[in-house]
Simulated scan of single mutants.
Amino acid sequence: MEAGMGGSGRPGTRPDLVIFDCDGVLIDSEPISLVRLTDNLNRIGVPIDLDTVARRFTGTSMTSIMAHIAADYGVTAPAGFADEVRADTLRAFEAELTAIAGVAEVLGTLPDRRCVASSSDPARLSHALTLTGLLPLFGGHVFSASMVKRGKPFPDLFLYAAERMGADPGACLVIEDSVPGVRAARAAGMRVFGFSGGGHWRHDPAAADLLGAGAALVFDEFRRLPELIAA
């Protein structure tokens, strides 16, 4: 499935930098993470189900999630809650985590400069990318929302990544799987492709959701990325 029309950092040219989200783009972690988050929220008294968590919080930092939980449900997380969720999720990763099909092959041949910019914390990012064998493919260029003041859907993380990589935001291409991530990329002045091949996208409006947020196109097979960048 593909929707929208092509182009890269600037339409008709290759991007100076390709910025990849991690969860749901490089690794098929979102189904695992969302289940663990839902169970832990239920544990502290938040009456929320998996579908609601997936719809509202996919691609969102833990800081933003807990702010929404406090505002909408009146539940303040106990001390150490975020660390407990993180540890629980990492244990599940050890047993279940896989890379998105085709990622290693594509990154092994893609000529463009690249980095990762994710809402996940640095420890989780490093652990997940190491488990799936993808970390060496980014040469240490991995950036977390914990490095900036505001997470997605604000543009701070993408702008920070571009600055650290010495790239003009207008010449960057972002690969994102979530509405907050697409909105963050567009707010940063970057072109963005939506990816809907992760296990958490189980509903038909995936393309409409990402296109509506500002993605130039949506694709669901990672192996198609080189041809889409070249278009």
Rank of each mutant, 00 (worst) to 15 (best):
A215D: 12
R86L: 05
A213S: 13
V142S: 01
K152R: 00
A3S: 14
V85R: 07
L41K: 04
S118G: 13
L225F: 06
L211M: 15
T109W: 04
V182L: 11
G199I: 11
V35E: 14
G140H: 09
L134V: 05
F93K: 05
G12Y: 03
R186G: 08
I48W: 07
G140W: 12
S8I: 00
D83C: 06
D168R: 15
F93V: 08
L107G: 10
G59P: 08
F57Q: 11
P111Q: 07
S118A: 14
L134R: 00
L17I: 05
T13V: 09
G139D: 05
L225Q: 08
E94I: 04
A95Y: 14
G74L: 10
S196Q: 01
D156N: 05
T38D: 01
E176V: 13
S29P: 03
F193H: 13
A99H: 14
T130Q: 09
V179E: 05
A215W: 13
R113T: 11
P169N: 10
A215Y: 13
R113A: 15
V192D: 06
P226E: 05
G181N: 06
R223M: 08
P180G: 08
L90Q: 12
R91H: 13
R86C: 04
D220G: 12
E30T: 03
V35Y: 01
T60V: 15
R10P: 02
P111V: 01
E176C: 12
G139T: 09
